[in-house]
Write a protein that binds this DNA or RNA. Structure first.
Lengths: 139, 139
DNA sequence: ACATTACTACGACGACTTTCGTATGTCAAG
DNA sequence: CTTGACATACGAAAGTCGTCGTAGTAATGT
């Protein structure tokens, strides 16, 4: 064991910032589509909300600077992919909101979520299953 | 019944916007303290994060314009209170995040929240109780 | 070869956020 | 009345966000 830093952090390991609304829209595409070109991202985004190609491009460039996405520029049309898996980002966002608006109470967050969109019977049992699983793991 | 509008909405009933980070900090104080003066809000806020009095004041003024808070200016020191109860705003925020980042899946949101802060045994049973309650009500 | 199409880079604008300083008003001592 | 403590109003700086137009460059078709 020498003094190598296998760790990716050097100098200021500035944590990945919370994605903005527009950025989250793009990440959603990247997560479901995998590595894609700007064009593909744009097509998907523009299908739901009229948006210029360059708007998506610019946002992706900024996201690259922020470290939210990785870019492969070997091809002429650069290929982007999310720097973090969906679950990781979701955890950040949930944790952040939990902290900021719910004073850390998972129960309150659940109340908020459930009352926001009436949960189906199926969804409720799904949640119950999730709790079972957690209780088993967390010994 | 004449053409009166007892309703508070006139012309564009523009919905209350999502509070920003700084605004949420202030709302948190208002919720736990009830109607208070700027001074009281400031003292609470400044205890955790150095902030000028006028910063809090200005933010509260903006929040008044947005309809996030109500102001009573009968006294020289105006008294502010949240325009919406804590639960209502929490529901908005949870629903918003659920929609934007979790594709509407309450289960995913729960996974995110639970993995963000390891839930205690007590918290888990609290959640289970909540589900019971929901299942009983939602017939 | 040249026109057309497909990309990236980037500057810039308007709206919004957060922050603070300064101007100004009110009121109670002294 | 004047001063000092305490309020509100407000302009403005500095940063971020979302958006787009334009410029330039590489590939493709005719």
């Amino acid at each position: 064991m020498s003094s190598y830093m296998a760790n990716a952090s050097k100098q200021s390991p500035k944590p990945t910032p919370r994605p903005t609304d527009a950025e989250l829209d793009i990440l959603t595409v990247l997560w479901s589509r995998g590595p894609v070109t700007v064009r593909e991202v744009h097509e998907t985004i523009a299908a739901r909300k009229p948006t210029q190609y360059t708007t998506v491009l610019k946002t992706l460039q900024i996201m690259t600077e922020k470290g939210l996405v990785r870019r492969n520029d070997e091809q002429r049309a650069h290929v982007y992919e999310s720097a973090q898996p969906r679950e990781w980002t979701q955890q950040q966002l949930a944790g952040d909101l939990l902290q900021r608006a719910f004073n850390g109470s998972a129960r309150s967050l659940m109340v908020g979520a459930l009352s926001a969109r009436k949960a189906s019977k199926k969804e409720l049992s799904e949640l119950r299953e999730l709790l079972d699983q957690y209780e088993r793991e967390a010994l």
